[in-house]
Design a protein around this nucleic acid. Structure first.
Lengths: 329, 329
DNA sequence: GTGAAAGCGCTAACAC
DNA sequence: GTGTTAGCGCTTTCAC
């Protein structure tokens, strides 16, 4: 293993000079700089991360706090999110550390205490009583919430604008003259647990539909979702007079086409269907009706941007970014 | 911020003693140990990770090298894998760092050079010319390959046994007396790029079918997979005399039922269908025919186990674990 | 059993 | 411009 001292010796300079070269300091003459660089290259030198961290108190790593996701259908997009976040963070010079929620926020707290991270991204924020938020706040850790809690406690927030999406979708129906909306959602548990995007979408959809004078019938999936097709059929049976169907449930979206075919509703032009889904789902299973596609990459980009800003300026005012996604017909 | 010195002072002992207490050394008397512990608690002390790493040269973190996954349908399971790996690693005392493949293996090399990780998990290993493998080998980094390359170079390997799975599925058809197999696969690109699980499954299926005297017709999806239903229909049109359909393509699995209904093949008892899918997909969209469900959690468990073993014993013989998944009817 | 002290590899004043 | 040096917080050998 070669250290900064080895390089210094080989280049006939002091450790300090090598350090300055690493930092691209303009104080170093071109001549010595290149001599030092040659030595670094010849010796295959690399900065030791731990030593640098200890010395600077900057870890240059971001913690990504991921939720436990048993039975949580939304997690399809988790992998894509993590990849994007990791790539984008690296572009700004940051590593990413995965922090899973086991034993409450234990792992998160330890990462903060041990000074393993400079900041954090909290994924799938809960509406109420999310202790990860309390922790971040208490420790004054630069943090971006991915999801909108009831009380962000002044922490930065980035997420898709589900309220806007719901509004756009309802207005789309109104434009088509629809009056009787069948709203098919996630399981009741999603709303009891107040899963962020679920709750926000439902509220906005209900409000907008009411405002537009639409009659609304709401159906929830079972939590196991053993048979989404059967569930959609049941929903339709429970409200057969619907003229518009809005789906916020990825599994149901997948089978919607099939169910319509089976029920002979497929080409009935007096029923409209629409949904909101993560965009990569639309490439997995091309959905044959209008959708709002949530663009994960754009969200990730904003998350990293806000977090890096926050790390470099702890006292800047809170940022809240709700990202708009287009209705895609 | 409180350091080990503060604790030492408060407990009227030396830094060394505090350190021994942290290490739970039996040399320390119960009396002093508890005095020190009280001081640690009172002061809210936590070990500084960077300092410990610098001192011990053990980072206690594992790098997870994830592939770029544009257009890669398999990535549905990525999130689940990452979560499991992270949870299981932590149970063994390790943190997990995400390393994305940008600019080749640049990020991976830097993580190794900077001594950021004690070991690595390489996800979605390629059959040939995966430079991440060369890197790990060259640097003698404890590494587990998730996927089976043509040449593992002595590195440990953990993966599902796709060969076994293919065999089980074919034998299932043979048992039912099927003779004419329609094999619907991923896109040609998957096989040209030699995506690991795709290639291994295909080879084994072809070999076993041939051995069993089955006639086989192979169909590939388009790379965009704009319309999986249409693709399946085309496949069937290209080989209408099939009596068995084996699917290795998650999108096609999703729409299979629908297509069969549309074509009026649904209840035809002289056609059998089977597939291989990640297990959480079977909870997302309950698949109505026999499947081999790849259990990610079991795979993750084995990966961590092997890697931790490897880190603690660099010279142990290579381990190769191919995990069997049951055919689930 | 406990303490003193040398290092781990790097950064950043501060001198010159 | 370059060198000297004092840390950063912890572990661990060696005395006692």
């Amino acid at each position: 293993m070669t250290t900064i001292s080895d390089v210094a010796k080989a280049a006939h300079v002091s450790k300090a000079t090598v350090s300055y070269v690493l930092a691209e300091s303009p104080k170093i003459s071109n001549e010595t700089a290149s001599r030092v660089k040659k030595a670094m290259h010849d010796l295959g030198y690399s900065v030791n991360h731990a030593a640098r961290v200890l010395s600077t108190s900057k870890t240059m790593t971001i913690g990504i706090v991921i939720p436990m996701m048993r039975e949580n259908v939304a997690s399809i997009s988790q992998g894509a999110y993590l990849t994007s976040l990791s790539v984008l963070a690296r572009e700004k010079g940051y590593d990413t550390m995965l922090i899973s929620e086991v034993e409450g926020s234990r792992a998160f707290r330890e990462a903060i205490d041990a000074k393993k991270i400079d900041g954090a991204i909290i994924m799938e924020v809960r509406r109420h009583k999310d202790e990860r938020i309390d922790l971040a706040k208490k420790y004054k850790l630069p943090t971006v919430l991915l999801g909108v809690p009831a009380d962000a406690q002044g922490l930065d927030v980035v997420d898709s604008d589900f309220t806007q999406a719901a509004r756009d979708l309802i207005r789309h129906f109104v434009r088509l003259g629809r009056k009787r909306l069948l709203l098919v959602l996630w399981s009741k548990e999603h709303y009891v647990k107040e899963i962020n995007f679920a709750v926000r979408f439902r509220e906005a959809a209900l409000v907008e539909a009411k405002k537009s004078g639409m009659k609304v019938h709401v159906e929830y999936s079972t939590s196991s979702q053993e048979n989404p097709a059967a569930e959609l059929k049941r929903a339709i049976k429970n409200y057969p007079e619907f003229d518009s169907l809005l789906i916020h449930n990825d599994s149901v979206v997948v089978v919607a086409q099939q169910v319509f075919l089976e029920l002979g509703l497929a080409h009935s032009s007096d029923i409209s269907v629409a949904a909101i889904i993560p965009d990569q789902m639309n490439s997995l299973v091309r959905v044959p009706f209008p959708t709002v596609d949530v663009n994960l990459d754009v969200v990730a980009q904003n998350v990293i941007e806000v977090l890096v800003d926050r790390i470099s300026n702890v006292d800047a005012p809170q940022q809240v970014r709700l990202l708009q996604h287009q209705l895609h017909e």
